[in-house]
Structures are given as structure tokens and as C-alpha cells.
Design a protein around this nucleic acid. Sequence first.
DNA 1: AAAGTCTGCAACCGCCAAACT
DNA 2: GAGTTTGGCGGTTGCAGACTT
Length: 267
Amino acid sequence: MGRRAAYRGEQGLKKGQWTPEEDKILVKHIEKHGCGRWNTIPKHAGLRRCGKSCRLRWKNYLNPDIKRGPFTFEDEKLILQLQARLGNRWSTIATHLPGRTDNDIKNLWNSRVKKRSLLDLDDPTTEASPTTGVMSQWESATLEPEPRLPGETSADCDNFFDIWNSEIVESFTTTLAPWYESTSCQIPFSRTPSSSSSALVKSSTDSCGSKDVDMASCSSSSCTKDDDDFALQLLLDSPLIGGDDDIDMTFLEEKSDGKTQSPAVGF
DNA sequence: AAAGTCTGCAACCGCCAAACT
DNA sequence: GAGTTTGGCGGTTGCAGACTT
């Protein structure tokens, strides 16, 4: 799969799809010499590519550390949470998903957002729903690059996860109750007592057309895609994330001793 | 079976910041 | 300190395969 047919760019540099031969040359060179100065690599390796292109090819495709295959539900949930917290800082988000590249995450996000915005357009009744606010904020987050948070470190992100794992899921169920009741839905998630991480369990009944699925007893591999999609959809639809503030989110700030900075999309 | 449409994703582009001269 | 180079990032594009009609 490639972006465009290979062609020669300026100065005889090749662009477009990488061939298996080029891949082999690049991998061999990096295995032997490491990836130091990308601009010198094509010259030394004998590739007619720019350094940038080599770097990208290695980083997004050839690097053996890259995890391939579809994202799990947990991965997607994590991305959702991180995006809500960090905005479109894909490289930062990628550091929390070992083996996943920022490009993969970006692609996943873009396809999800695209899907969602089309759904919203198709269904005018979503106008009054909290979902609309969520999506418009996500989309605006895409359009307006969030300013870098000065001095933010991965430790700050970890702090966020501590908060998330300890408090948010609980708050998720309690805070959302009024909304789900108002929409005749049952709260779709409850927290498993034994779970230390952010395990969410779909309730066994609901009035919104969900199926009876116990997410806790269901590994990502044994769950059907529909189930995963359904659960993710509910997260996406949650008014908790970025809604227009009928919901008190101050517990986040209190819990984090002021470390939690105001999020890109309204946490 | 063919044509049209959709989706996933590899790769390019432009911008920015850090490092180097 | 100014100019240049390099690496990194996020946004976007468009091809190819999957799916639908």
C-alpha cells in the first residue's frame, strides 16, 4: 500500500512507496551502524532517499519494536483517555502504548473521528445530546493545535493515570447516572472490584440496544469486534469527556494537587 | 462479476525547535 | 548572537484492498 507511485524528486531522490530492496538496505545499515544522523544514512547506505524519508520508514514501519496488528479495546480506550487529556500530541500518547507509533495512533484517531463526525451529521437528533459537544471539541482540538504544556513530563502523565485509575472510573459511573437516566439508558459500565487497572464492565442489561456482555470475563481476543465497538462508542458518547459542563470535574484537580492542568478538551 | 464506495495506512509536506557552526 | 542544519512532530494526501451494491 502506498501513497503514490514512485517517482524521482529533486536531485534524483526517490519518493513514494519503498521497495523491499530499499527496506533491506536500510535495515542492514541501521543494524550495523545504528540510526545516528539520518541525513547521512542514505548516502552511506546507498539509498536514493532523503534522510527524513529513511527516518520515517524506520520509525513507522521497519523498526522491529513496532507492534503490528489491530488495536485492542484497551489500547483504544487508553488513546481516548490520553487524547482527551493531552490533545493531538500523538508522539506523547505513543509513549504510553509500547510498540505503537504516533502515526498509527494518529491514523486510528482520524478514522474514528471521521466515522463519528459522519454519524453526527447523519443524525440530526444528536444535536441535543451531550455527544455533540464532545465531538465538536475533539474536532476543534484537531483543528487547533494545543499549545505545549510547559515543563510537562511523562511523570505528569503517569500522575494522570493514577488519578484516572483510582477515581475516574468510579466517578464515571456515579457522575453519568443522571445523564443515562435522562436518556433512558442504564449506565453501561461498572467497576470490577478486583481490577486494579481501568477495567470497565458493561452492565448485563440496558435499554439502549446493547448486548449482554461481561467485559471483565472477556479478553480482548475473545470479545467480538461489535462488543468492543459498542463499548468504545459509549466512551466516545460519554458526556464526561469534554461536555459543556453540567458535570463537576473538580475532583480531578483536587486529587492531583494542582498538577493536573486544564485539558485540551474540557476535562 | 463488475462498478462504485469506503477504509486503512504508508508516506509526504510544512513548520518548529534544538543543535551546530 | 545570527544563520544554517537536522530531527521531530502533526496534518494531510491518495493508493490499494475490502466491502457493498
